[in-house]
Design a protein around this nucleic acid. Structure first.
Lengths: 143, 143
DNA sequence: TACGCAAATGAGAATGATTATCACTTCTCG
DNA sequence: CGAGAAGTGATAATCATTCTCATTTGCGTA
């Protein structure tokens, strides 16, 4: 089963444009990022449409929610497959996938507290290699 | 330095009531939970006041944000001290502290991707021992 | 190819949590 | 006491997200 941006839902000019914008951004994005990105393009889409498209893409597993940024939900292209989590660069938005480190923690919670873990959220924030280099170069520039 | 609910900020009848409500609930809570809890009490407090009190308590380190529930921010009494994370019972709201399992993951992200982790979020959701027992007893009751 | 209808669209209203405003009250401290 | 800083609260404002509903469109089918 091949995963398409919208699963087996209907496609449209707007949804194509939105999916392209996701690919184009290539990093973590908010709904607002998409709205801005497609403003330039000939085939625009209303805010409600973008929200609906994002929901559809999330439902189909093409993207996933990876956290939030300033009160806005943050999404990223889904790598599919195995259970994993995300490292989000707070400077450029790059998203890296990391293995799930919680099997041990979940086990520990179960053993120590009798707590059964049914879900968990993990997101790392920091700087990707590229942005670290930029910051080093910019060091001393002031602001 | 002894941690009080509001740090070195001024206290008041309302803030005392709010802090008491936090203790009374003894589990993860939302601002709305507090508003409801103090409605019964003689010393009420406006919504704005509760929000301000929660901010003050969070700033002083007496409580911490542990996630969100249905779009509302979720808080819990802070255990203070070492870096840790939370296991939130999705049934009763009980909050357990767990050790941070991310040192290995953060290290892995750094080694594999050159990613420097500056912050991270971890929350486990599931059922505490008590609620597991309740669910077992209720099994077969239908809904 | 034409038809029918479920699904998608979009402009704007509605929702709902959180924050800001501002006049007023109440501590704190000299 | 008196001043000023901090807290209060009713309400307006903000802001992301969802809903509404009339209209359009994709797509399977006759």
């Amino acid at each position: 089963m091949r995963i398409t941006p919208y699963g087996r839902a209907r496609t449209s000019r707007q949804r194509d444009t939105i999916a392209e914008a996701v690919e184009l951004i290539g990093a973590a994005f908010t709904v607002d990022d998409l709205v801005c990105a497609i403003r330039d393009r000939r085939a625009g889409a209303g805010v409600a449409t973008v929200y609906r498209a994002v929901s559809a893409m999330e439902e189909s597993g093409w993207i996933e929610r990876v956290g939030s940024r300033e009160g806005r939900a943050l999404y990223a292209r889904c790598r599919g497959g195995a259970h994993h989590h995300h490292a989000v660069c707070t400077s450029c938005g790059t998203v890296l996938a990391t293995d799930c480190p919680l099997e041990a923690a979940a086990l520990s919670a179960e053993v120590e507290h009798g707590f059964t873990v049914t879900a968990h959220e993990v997101t790392l924030y920091g700087l990707c290699r590229t942005c670290q280099v930029s910051e080093n170069n910019a060091a001393g520039d002031g602001d």
